[in-house]
């Protein structure tokens, strides 16, 4: 008799537990307000990344096309996987002294892991994180970028 009672109580317990699950999915089915989807390409205008978002590394240039990079190579040294290559030149400055300036600050976006060591260790705060995340391309070589803009110069700090 006991086993028969168990048989039927099993059935009812089972059905009630199934109903509990169906209530949850049913509840969401009838409450479309719970939809949390952000419709990406449609919301492009309003989509704003957090200010600390690490999308890519950029070298901020001011209005006079000046940047702060001295070409010291600390970012290159600190980068764990060689995403940064710096090509420097030596040019004579106004006083006739030879001075190191960057020729190309090459940044391999294809390799970058956004660990932030370059931005953190840069002694002259020449690097920053950009907010752009739409980087997908058809050609791998497009992911190698030169961060300093053509014709840009180093910003001389007023001493």
């Amino acid at each position: 008799m006991n086993s028969i009672a168990k048989y039927f109580s099993d059935i009812f317990k089972g059905i009630s537990s199934l109903w509990a699950g169906m209530r949850i999915t049913g509840k969401y089915f009838f409450s479309p307000g719970a939809i949390v989807t952000q419709q990406y390409p449609e919301n492009r205008a309003t989509l704003k990344m957090e200010e600390r978002f690490k999308g890519e590394i950029v070298m901020p240039h001011d209005a006079n096309n000046l940047h702060a990079c001295t070409g010291c190579g600390i970012c290159e040294m600190n980068c764990p996987n060689g995403s940064i290559e710096i090509l420097t030149d030596r040019v004579a400055n106004a006083e006739g002294k030879m001075e190191r300036v960057i020729d190309k600050h090459i940044y391999h976006l294809s390799m970058c892991t956004f660990c932030g060591l370059c931005v953190k260790t840069c002694p002259s705060d020449a690097l920053a994180f950009g907010q752009e995340f739409e980087h997908a391309v058809f050609d791998r070589s497009k992911l190698t970028k030169v961060l300093n803009q053509p014709g840009s110069k180093i910003r001389k700090e007023a001493k």
């Binding site: 990406y40 980087h135 997908a136 058809f138």
Partner: peptide
């Protein structure tokens, strides 16, 4: 052969969606 490259480590889901649109 690769058709689309999506950089990032890891890329945001939006970046993946963008790559898919590409």
């Amino acid at each position: 052969p690769v058709d689309v490259y999506i950089p990032g480590c890891p890329p945001r889901p939006e970046a993946l969606l963008y790559g898919v649109m590409q």
